[in-house]
Amino acid sequence: MSSRVVLVTGVSRYLGGRLAALLAAESGIERVIGVDVVPPRQDVGRTEFVRADIRNPIIAKVIASAKVDTVVHMSVIATPFGAGGRTAMKEINVIGTMQLLAACQKAPSLRKLIVKSTTAVYGASSRDPALFTEGMEPRSQFRSGYGKDSTEVEGYVRGLGRRRPDVDVTLLRFANFIGPRIDTPLTRYFSLPLVPRMFGFDPRVQFIHEDDGIEVLRRSVVEERRGTFNVAGAGVLLLSQAIRRAGRTSVQIPSPAVSAVGSVFRRAGLVDFSPEQMQFLQFGRGVDTTRLRTDFGYPPAFTTAGAFDDFVACRNLTKYVDPVRLEHLERRLLATAERRRSATIGGVHA
């Protein structure tokens, strides 16, 4: 069954706004309702904006009165940075989701629920398998943070799926977003002139290009895609490799100093390093995307490396180590060697 009335939460954020604009351009969809606490800054087309906090029961009235049949929940936030602290972040993520799902459960018109989750629910530890499939559990315990919030959100979503079997639930676990325009802790991290990393560790990282991520969300709305899917570009990059591809140099910080350096960066407002982020930068994470490519039927256009290169190219990051100049230097060295050789041979036979 295709969607007629779609409600998008977190519409004022980058991905939410882009999805709303894309859905608004879709002819089969009658109405797109965007919900957020602040008005969207980017163009969202014919999307109707409703200023509401999903923690407030008013959201139930919006869903009921507009006869919403599809809810796209995208307002689980990753950092306490913009939210005003960890407590507020948890409030928005967990209590907000509970309110939203409570409203969804009571809405007879609802047919489809799409939730943007994260691969952070798998955690990051030394006991992790190389690639997590959708059925695997995290090997490490979360104390707090995005991963824990997302795990709780997923728990509530599964609960709704049990209580409302008539609702198709799509749970999308995205790897770290990257791309020309999106702003995340990781894009800020890679933009630092000197990139700090954990001494003695070189984690594997996976990226999903923002365009691919939006396309996966769009397809889940306009097509039938029930289930849980890992969403990531093919392949992995090592953190050191990614830093080199960005033309940057890294500095390795020994683990006793890591939290101190992290808090300096946090206070300077450069990059938010949560303890969870630190674990990710220590052990890394990889997810298996077979289900996305076969069952969901969308192989992301960008590989992990391709998405990262696109990010580097479009951001105009100053490459402190410039591959073009390096190649030039290499050619010059070889040319010199060749000249010297021909000179010697010429000298012998002259």
Binding site: A130, R204, L237, Q241, G247, L326
Partner: peptide, 8 residues
């Protein structure tokens, strides 16, 4: 320049 392949 980080231009080498690694597997999963």
């Amino acid at each position: 320049t980080g231009d080498y392949p690694v597997d999963d």
